[in-house]
């Protein structure tokens, strides 16, 4: 598949743009085969086990030293809160929230924890033009506030609406999101605080590859209990956090229309052109401009010469 650019082809092509596009196509086919770090960790969220105790929320707040909540974490009235017609979502003071879903036909409601899903090929990372994001080999998508300029492109890029902006601090731009407890736990091989706090092991921590096997085993050992799908195994190129559910995933607020390809693949060609536009176009159009105005310039020069005579 490797496209080599011979000298002849180069000359044949003529335009620098052609060369750029050829090189671009080559790099896209390489990137599409990246399936994440082989030993990356993840978490399997089993919605059939979650009882909505909010221990994960409390543990997250404590571990990440987030500001105190409006209501105690053992206050379950938050499940009835609606904001602009939507259930609670993550924000600058909550890296994770649990929501209740009353599914018709089910005796008990289901609860779903939301947090960053730590994509294998994160859209936030690829959309960030100052490279504030990093996908670590351990599986976490982490963020460096020191280089962030506060453009919030990542908020738009994220298919799960996870990164949120710290609006309370206008002059110190900072995106707030779950970082898989990377600094304090994951980099030392420890599970994130929410996983450790969960009494029901609704959150199973392990190598992402092992979690997929575990998910499949649960389906085999309890026929009919689960939807035959692990949400996040393939969605947007795969995520480190994945979900098991007893009901269709759209019934518990998960977007079932996400592509299997990383979001990156849809914008890669465009993003690849950006450096070319920024580097070649100024020179190219400056050249056009000079060519177009050369006659005038010559004319002026001649006129000046005549005047001097």
């Amino acid at each position: 598949m490797k496209t080599t650019v011979s000298r002849r082809n180069f000359i044949k092509g003529g335009l620098a743009g052609t060369v750029a596009v050829t090189a671009l196509k080559e790099s896209s086919s390489q990137a599409a085969t990246f399936e994440g770090y082989p030993d990356g960790m993840g978490v399997l969220v089993d919605l059939t086990r979650c009882v909505g105790c909010r221990s994960c929320e409390a543990a997250c707040n404590q571990e990440q030293k987030l500001p105190p909540p409006e209501k105690p974490f053992d206050d379950f009235s938050v499940f009835d809160e609606m904001m602009h017609g939507q259930k609670r979502r993550t924000d600058e003071t909550h890296y994770t929230v649990v929501n209740r879903y009353d599914v018709p036909g089910l005796e008990h409601p289901l609860f779903r924890k939301i947090q960053c899903n730590h994509c294998q090929e994160p859209a936030c990372l690829t959309s960030c033009f100052v490279n504030a994001y990093t996908k670590t080999p351990e599986g976490a998508v982490i963020y460096n506030p020191n280089v962030c300029v506060g453009c919030r492109t990542c908020m738009i890029a994220c298919p799960f609406y996870i990164p949120t902006f710290k609006y309370s601090s206008a002059f110190n731009p900072r995106i707030m999101k779950c970082i898989f407890c990377y600094d304090t736990r994951l980099k030392d091989g420890k599970p994130p605080a929410c996983v450790e706090a969960c009494p029901q092991e609704a959150l199973t921590f392990g190598k992402r590859n092992d979690l997929i096997k575990i998910g499949r085993q649960r389906m085999v050992e309890t026929p009919g209990k689960y939807e035959d799908h692990i949400y996040g195994e393939h969605e947007v190129g795969g995520t480190a956090w994945m979900y098991l559910s007893s009901v269709p995933f759209d019934k518990v607020g998960l977007d079932t229309h996400l592509p299997k390809e990383p979001i990156l693949n849809f914008v890669k060609d465009f993003l690849g052109i950006v450096p070319m536009v920024l580097t070649i176009w100024p020179a190219l159009f400056a050249g056009f401009h000079l060519l177009a105005t050369r006659k005038d310039w010559l004319k002026n020069k001649n006129d000046d010469a005549h005047e001097e005579e």
């Binding site: 909010r54 221990s55 409390a58 543990a59 707040n61 404590q62 105190p68 909540p69 409006e70 209501k71 105690p72 974490f73 053992d74 206050d75 706090a197």
Partner: peptide, 11 residues
Amino acid sequence: EKMFQTGKFAP
């Protein structure tokens, strides 16, 4: 109580 910020640690 401290972790759940409830009881005497309630906000």
